[in-house]
Design a protein around this nucleic acid. Sequence first.
DNA 1: GTCTATATAGGGATAGAC
DNA 2: GTCTATCCCTATATAGAC
Lengths: 198, 198
Amino acid sequence: MKTQLSKDALIGKLVDVVYDYGYDGTTLSVISEATGLGKASLYHHFPGGKEEMAAAVLAHSDRWGEARIGALLAGGLPAEQKLRGLFQALEEVHTRSHQLTLMNVFTYGAARQVFGAQVRSRVRAGLEVMAGLLHACGIPSPTAEARALDAYIQIEGAMVLARTLDDLEVFRAVVRRLPDALLAPPSGLTIDQLAARR
Amino acid sequence: MKTQLSKDALIGKLVDVVYDYGYDGTTLSVISEATGLGKASLYHHFPGGKEEMAAAVLAHSDRWGEARIGALLAGGLPAEQKLRGLFQALEEVHTRSHQLTLMNVFTYGAARQVFGAQVRSRVRAGLEVMAGLLHACGIPSPTAEARALDAYIQIEGAMVLARTLDDLEVFRAVVRRLPDALLAPPSGLTIDQLAARR
DNA sequence: GTCTATATAGGGATAGAC
DNA sequence: GTCTATCCCTATATAGAC
């Protein structure tokens, strides 16, 4: 058979594996089993081997961002709806309680040397996008940047706790309450009023 | 020579390596280089091999908790000082911007099967301790539990972002502002007033 | 308690048939 | 485009000398 799996489907499997096992834990044997392809076939698609496969995972994340988030930002919605849509998109891609993130796959060990800088620049770009949205929602500039960083911290932390406690709800609750918390007027609601809004 | 490195010092090296490389990335070669011991010597100290070495890292974390946190909790300080001391202890152990955490080493891939449940129970215990302290500080019970979970989320998330951005300050800022945020009266300060207190 | 040497398995990677 | 077979290297682990 020429093709059992489209390139996109192949990369999709790759993404799942990497986010389950981490970079070092993702062996060619694991990929082979997950995709149904032999090791040599994997090298046909990715001559650069494991490193190129990991790069494909990163590139997949980029494409997803450009498609899903880019379309959202380019659309005619008001800034607040864009921000809320962003968190909705986030909830859509994190569906398993275990499941790592870019930041928890590529920022330590062997992967850090190769991909650390790339991940950093993507995160920085993401922080700017979120701060920009908050600014467009009326949050003054220094506060907007601080809240964007806080948002990332809480998102990543929620994923870590969800994985550790094996409870996806931990992540969902945070993602759902964050938009209101971020959009609160600079001297508005108390943290508990915000928590009660969940 | 009989002993170049005490068992405690040996485990200390082990801890550093595991928190730098993750479970899969921590190879015996890396450990050997970090400790100056040959592989066979490592097996003398840990007959169970890599798994026992990882278990020693977990046990080290337990001992640290019992010593550093246990003493704090057993002491005669008021609850608020105990809580603040807890965050101070946290800042003491996280000294490098890269550096993983228990939750980011043992909760995925091969390690998850072996150590996932242990880490989960330790985190649950930690959550109870923190909620108990908050309760003792006058935070009513459902709020205390929610804030304890939020604290863990922000701590872990801050470590992830600090590692990704290679900036330890990200972590430090969160750890320093958290005590005030957690101790705020249930309908007290706004989130920005809290942020301004950093 | 540490070492050298070695056994065995699995990792990444390639050649070449189909 | 996928496979089988194979290569080399590293990983974990052990035996036995010192």
